[in-house]
Nucleic acid binder design. Sequence first.
DNA 1: AAAATACTTAAGGGATTGCTTGACAATTAC
DNA 2: GTAATTGTCAAGCAATCCCTTAAGTATTTT
Lengths: 110, 110
Amino acid sequence: MMNHSLDRAFTALGDPTRRAIVERLASGSATVSELAAPLPMSLPAVMLHLKVLEESGLVASEKKGRVRTCRIEPAALSLAEQWVSDRRRLWEARLDRLDAFLDSAAEETP
Amino acid sequence: MMNHSLDRAFTALGDPTRRAIVERLASGSATVSELAAPLPMSLPAVMLHLKVLEESGLVASEKKGRVRTCRIEPAALSLAEQWVSDRRRLWEARLDRLDAFLDSAAEETP
DNA sequence: AAAATACTTAAGGGATTGCTTGACAATTAC
DNA sequence: GTAATTGTCAAGCAATCCCTTAAGTATTTT
């Protein structure tokens, strides 16, 4: 499965500026200017980051008048979260089985 | 907090080859050659991906004789998972509060 | 000791990323 | 209607990324 949307989601989250944007949006919607205000870069640069976030599906936005308001898209976050969670659980299940094996082996040769 | 380790973890997971490696390792440790076998690229290329994964903390490895064996490092996976989870929950809690507000508002003007 | 195996390092090249500045809408306020 | 606000587009540039091939090193195997 050539999962393009996970590519984009994880790559988007790999940049500290974009994570800061997601962090800010997690506590409520915000306009482009509001998002840009605390960031140490030009407005066009922030726009580019927002574009990446939108293409990844992590963020959505609507323009009303001259103001664009952005919000989290929880489904995409959930997808990324799930991928990591599934792999970690699979690995940990393996470890559990190994522990169980070692324990039973120890019982047999006390 | 300038979270460098999350940068590396998410960026690492943003590449499909590296996700394929993590996927493979989730179901058990493997040598470099075993990891490289199904991948459509040269061995040195795979080594570079492994280097990125190790620097991100997602994967660890040990060399015994001439064979390097790689394994998942669940703590780093957990960290990434947690970051996404926390933001999603924060956002969803907001949505819940909004629903509650709309419900109570509807009760007051029936 | 020679050959095969398993990995590693180095050099380089083409594509992508993350910014910048400058110019240009489109909308709202005065 | 003029000016301020808010966002967008375009060109360009330095750094990084992902891969290649070629040439090693270290460890078995025969």
